[in-house]
Amino acid sequence: MGAIETVGLTKQYGRRRLLRPHRSRGDVVLALDRLSLEVREGEVFGFLGPNGAGKSTAIRLLLGFLHPTAGRATVLGLDAERDSVAIRRRIGYLPGGVAFWDSLTGERLLDELTGFAGRPAIRRRELCDRLELSEETLRRPVRDLSRGTRQKLGIVQALQHDPELAILDEPSEGLDPLMQHAFYAVLDDLRAAGRTVFFSSHVLSEVERVCDRVAIVRRGRLVALEEIDALLAHRRRNVEMRLTGAAPALDGVPGVTAVHRFDGRLTCQLEGDVKPFLAAIAGAPIADLTIEPARLEDAFLEFYEDESEPPANAAVATGRSPR
């Protein structure tokens, strides 16, 4: 059983008017379209997409804040709509752009949220230490805290009761690079402790750094669902070589595309297995060779490079990138 399972989860905002349906088309927005995915227990799962892709809608459906138009979702084996309260007893949630009651001190805020949750904040001290939230900082009213410090408070409130599943919406937003790394270390610990983390982001480097698997959504539809390593393996790597003699023949070599030769240099793109490429350049007069590692960012941009083109349904079914 997965920590999160969705089957054909669909959310449509707005409604068609009975009397003037032709005037209502602009009111109806398909925010999420038949999302089917499974997040396994104990994994850190990245949920990627640009603003408006449907990430927050999906999260709000999992939490029971929204009611699905079609499909269903289960969280920790419980129905997201029917058993919402029981689910929220076992999870931690960090909303995107989290807001708090400004007049409360950080400490009071965390205490009150613990009171609402009805579970002891067994990890608060440790999390505050790791995110460098000092007692002095926690004694200040929330309105006096910087955006980054509020975000740290948001992370602490989501994780302080050691939830089985953490749902984090843009968790590193507002954190400085040092704190981002401290946060990634917290995620690593959660994974090591067997906790599941589902987090949405458009910071691709962090997804690449911390996630086991990633789903990419575009215009409310799932366009890829893969292991990070597998996703990167399918990405094109940029290759550049400086030559001292004749360029090797790369045309027709499996996985090699976009070959360009100029001024004693050769550039190309390499995808998939590297062995045929290495065999093709063996013995070539190469003075220098650079293979730029595949980055998730490149993978991500490939999914979005042609916004006018609708996503291929095949990608949803196979979990592979559209070509």
Binding site: R88, V98, Q157
Partner: peptide, 13 residues
Amino acid sequence: RGTLEVLLARPLA
């Protein structure tokens, strides 16, 4: 204000 979300993230019907 966005605080309802924080509140309803707790096990409160």
